[in-house]
Design a protein around this nucleic acid. Structure first.
Lengths: 214, 214
DNA sequence: ACTTGAAATTGAACGGCGATCAATTTATTT
DNA sequence: AAATAAATTGATCGCCGTTCAATTTCAAGT
């Protein structure tokens, strides 16, 4: 048998990604098997390899979709110019997503390409997109600082948040601890630090406490 | 051939773990093969399975050793009661370690047991040990707060730091960005937030700015 | 010293995996 | 209608983790 044309190439792509997502969300990335995906969609392995280079490639695209979905959720959040509130909303959005799709989210960072293989450009771009969301929320509080500085604080927050979800996803939080409460503590304290801490020499913040700027 | 007694059970254990560490540090966790370890140490696969339950078990113990080593480094750090400085030293220690053993460190969180399999007690204890180091450094600044609160801030910092090293380890930092500078920013801002931010009602901090305590 | 039971070690074997590719069938172009 | 291109199969390869009966050696008891 060959060339069934039951599905277009695009439909097939969807079938495969959807099936992979379904399997990963149920069994985790460990449980993803090419043969299983093929069986699921009613084709054979060879067809998978017609559409994707290999499993790594398939997983990258699956993870790409996960990032897309998260991005879509995040962009629904309305910003109010109040960083504390905006960040909390964003975090809420972010954590809701990771709670609803824990294993899919885990797969995003659990999966690692062999070193010899560079992360595709389109993937890095999706990540940057998410970062800039945080930057926008953080901007008002940092109006006196350089773009580079804003960028860095956004990234620090993002990475910190990320650490929490990773540890949560691998079941390393302790009893009664949730990434939501942790994240709130982080943001509150961090924003306090940005607001009341030592200021760079920008002239528009009242309390320079005399400590050396970083 | 059987029962060579070239090595005691303990020596064999060491041989296997050391070989695994060597392989992982060179090739990453992906490159770890039971057959390769066996060949390395001059035994056959079966012997591996005499000492370890399976590869997951072997990896857990290998990662346990990594945690031990990091703990040993961290406990060399002398604390001065100045949280900012102490934390920076600890972070320096932590990051030095992860930079010197990037792939071994990556293996610690890259590896995930099947869900059905609980993380061994002894492993969780090693993690808690590292956490309490941070708690000790943070304590002076939080003398007025509850133990639970101190604990939580320590964990937030630890997880944040963790996020950075994870992302660094998977090559997701950008040009000119290092986990060291990121971590310094995090700690500085966070400690500022703890020092100058809204205080809980403990009576021994001067600047209560009136915001609602968390 | 001899016997006996326990422990260690081997290596063949199993089933499953990702990946490859010649062969086949169907669709598309000329 | 013929020729070309694309899709699909399924057999096949080599490797993987894991198991286990068989073998050999060590240690204990007598």
């Amino acid at each position: 048998m060959a060339r069934r044309s039951d599905h277009t190439r695009e439909e097939l792509w969807r079938l495969i990604i959807d099936s992979s997502r379904k399997i990963v969300e149920k069994e985790g990335l460990r449980g993803l098997r090419a043969r299983q995906v093929a069986r699921d969609i009613g084709y054979t392995i060879g067809t998978l390899y017609n559409l994707f280079e290999d499993l790594d490639d398939l997983i990258m695209h699956m993870n790409g979709e996960t990032l897309d979905q998260l991005m879509e959720e995040c962009s629904k959040v309305e910003l109010t110019q109040n960083p504390n509130m905006d960040l909390e909303r964003l975090v809420h959005c972010y954590l809701s997503f990771t709670h609803e799709n824990p294993k899919l989210w885990n797969a995003v960072f659990e999966h690692k390409l062999p070193e010899t293989r560079p992360v595709p450009e389109w993937f890095s771009e999706k990540v940057s997109g998410l970062l800039s969301t945080i930057e926008r929320a953080l901007a008002p509080i940092l109006s006196g600082r350089s773009a580079a500085e804003i960028h860095q604080h956004a990234r620090v927050l993002w990475m910190s948040l990320f650490g929490m979800t990773v540890l949560e996803g691998s079941g390393r939080l302790q009893e009664g601890e949730t990434s939501m409460t942790l994240a709130k503590t982080l943001i509150k304290t961090y924003v306090d630090g940005l607001t009341n801490g030592p200021q760079v020499n920008a002239g528009n913040y009242p309390k320079d406490n005399g400590k050396t700027p970083r």
